[in-house]
Design a protein around this nucleic acid. Structure first.
Lengths: 217, 217
DNA sequence: ATTTTAAATACCGCATGACGGTATGTATAA
DNA sequence: TTATACATACCGTCATGCGGTATTTAAAAT
């Protein structure tokens, strides 16, 4: 294949294919050769020119998945018109509303047999999302009086861990009814921390989405 | 090597070595050959006689890890002298007390780069421990009046998920202080559900253990 | 009760093919 | 003319398959 004037296009094409295959078949059950085959006229040398290893591709894939979400989180985190609690509420609303627009959601991956990808998401949630997005919001909430806790770091972790992992329909595929119960228990948990941020509207939207997701599989 | 009259011994020897290597180096970075080498005079064929694949060994390893814990859970679950809430409290106390006796704890594995093993534990927690051990206890608690919830399944999952995964020092290695904060937030979460089952004694013991674990690494 | 025989099981160790990764060559853009 | 974007050929490692052997078990035959 002729050399591409925009190497970024090639990189994106590789990530597109790798992304889809990692989702469908799982990282460890996807070979470099399969990626090459589905790339159409690109060679192994091309891939190893742009990525230093297979794992490096996975990192890039997860970065692309979390990237868009993180930009949304940053935008809400940096708003000046909301107090801490309101920001948390906004985040959950936005997250739910944006789910069905998400490319990841569309491919409906099942992460059950995809330990590498799951762990990437899991550790990203606790080592990046919690300290860099949720924690600042909780600290603001403590300052502005909308959130009460003596342990902002642990609380940030717990909330986002439960929301991003336990309630993630891509990680644990329950029935729509089971998931709805999870959401309500999550709502109760948040209320226990004085955070009444999950309202009826979000719950209903979540339930709809779970049904859509289930039907796509 | 001479044929062993008790094949179970051989199987156990394989699991011993595999277990240690999977913990120390991670599943994917442990080769079958390494297991053979450390086995002393056993061959590749022997392993594939007892296990149908490398992954099959991992399953057996995780079963052995969770087995002892599950027997403890079953024993408490089936007691007749405790109500639901008391059983939950007993479980947490026992889990904490038994931690340092645990062989797994002694080898001090870091599951950060061991996605396969981590996922095994994670799904075992939600698909086996939650429905078969915690859920019956919560249901009993509803009946005997010691626990109030309309969503026993989801609550069982949430509790054990947070306790076994988020608070697991083998999965997320925080400082002793960070972990102590996690435990307190967990205590608050449980109180939010009307479950005051984590007392000072357990908290202090947990903190000690975290220090011991950290020093072993 | 002892021996014979048949079958199942434990184990060996080499062959194989797949896979991740590398070294080197080549053409094109800058 | 140099750096970059690829192609091609090749390497080492690894999980796994498989043909074969030794040993145990159990039942049949003596």
């Amino acid at each position: 294949m002729a050399r591409n004037k925009n190497p970024e296009e090639t990189v994106n094409k590789i990530l597109d294919v790798a992304s889809r295959l990692f989702m469908e078949k799982g990282y460890e059950y996807t070979s470099i050769q399969e990626i090459i085959d589905q790339l159409g006229g690109l060679s192994k040398g091309a891939i190893y020119h742009h990525f230093k290893s297979k794992e490096d591709i996975l990192v890039a894939v997860t970065d692309r998945i979390t990237g868009e979400s993180n930009r949304m989180l940053a935008k809400i985190r940096d708003r000046k018109d909301l107090n801490g609690k309101e920001k948390l509420k906004t985040i959950f609303k936005e997250s739910v509303l944006r789910l069905e627009l998400n490319e990841v959601f569309a491919t409906a991956p099942n992460l059950h047999n995809n330990s590498k990808l799951l762990c990437s998401i899991l550790y990203d949630t606790l080592e990046d999302v919690a300290p860099n997005y949720i924690l600042p919001i909780i600290k603001q909430g403590i300052t502005d009086g909308s959130i009460q806790t003596d342990y902002p770091e642990a609380l940030a972790e717990l909330i986002i861990f439960v929301a991003n992992v336990w309630m993630n329909p891509m990680i644990f595929d329950n029935t729509a009814a089971e998931n709805y119960n999870k959401f309500i228990v999550f709502q109760q948990m948040m209320r226990g921390f004085g955070l009444d941020i999950v309202d009826e509207e979000i719950l209903n939207r979540l339930q709809e989405l779970t049904s859509i997701y289930q039907s796509k599989k």
